[in-house]
Simulated scan of single mutants.
Amino acid sequence: MRTLFSSLLLPLMLLATPARADLHITRDHGGYVEEYKAKYQRIRDRRERVIIDGICNSACTLVFGIVPLNKICVTPRASLGFHQAYYDKAFTFGIKVTSLEGTSELMSYYPQPVKDWIARNGGLTTEMKKIKNGVDLWKIVDPCPEEY
């Protein structure tokens, strides 16, 4: 009887428990803005959490403008990198050509704490500007709870 009860209860418990799929960012150097926007909109719509546990550079940082900040946390290994947007080098003969329109779009997504940090650090340029774990990062996003 106990085995029958257990075999019926377990599947019901699994159905009743909502699936939670956290996104762990450990080494993301960025990519195409449109792909990141779609990815983070799916995460936001599913109400999933994002744990930044390493490098999150370039388009990866759009997470802060799309996923609610209360669904994002950073570990001691977190590092963010910001720079101006540029066109795909495949279309510019391998030369990095910045996009003022793309940079403006990036900035439009960022919440005020990100914009404030960027402004305090000279604005977006072609050079990567990084925030590592610490007070500056915690002004933008909370540290993860100890269990991460």
Rank of each mutant, 00 (worst) to 15 (best):
G31Q: 09
M107A: 00
E146T: 08
E35W: 12
T126A: 12
Y110Q: 03
I55F: 13
M13I: 15
N121I: 10
Y110N: 05
G134N: 05
L8C: 04
P145C: 05
L137V: 02
A119I: 02
W138A: 07
A59K: 13
N57C: 07
K89V: 06
I66E: 01
T98Q: 06
P111K: 05
P76K: 14
S7W: 04
T92K: 01
M1A: 05
H24L: 15
D142Y: 01
T61M: 11
C56T: 11
L80F: 15
V50N: 10
L9E: 04
V135C: 00
I72G: 13
K139R: 06
Y109N: 01
T126R: 11
A19M: 07
G65F: 10
I131V: 15
E35H: 10
G31W: 08
P145Q: 11
D136H: 05
L23Y: 12
S7T: 10
P68I: 11
L106A: 03
S104H: 06
F64N: 08
V141G: 08
N133H: 14
G134E: 07
M128Y: 08
T125F: 07
I51W: 06
L100P: 03
P76Y: 05
Y36T: 05
S108H: 00
V33A: 13
P11T: 09
Q41W: 00
C60N: 11
S79T: 07
I51E: 12
S104A: 14
W117F: 07
K115R: 15
F93C: 00
S99H: 04
K132Y: 09
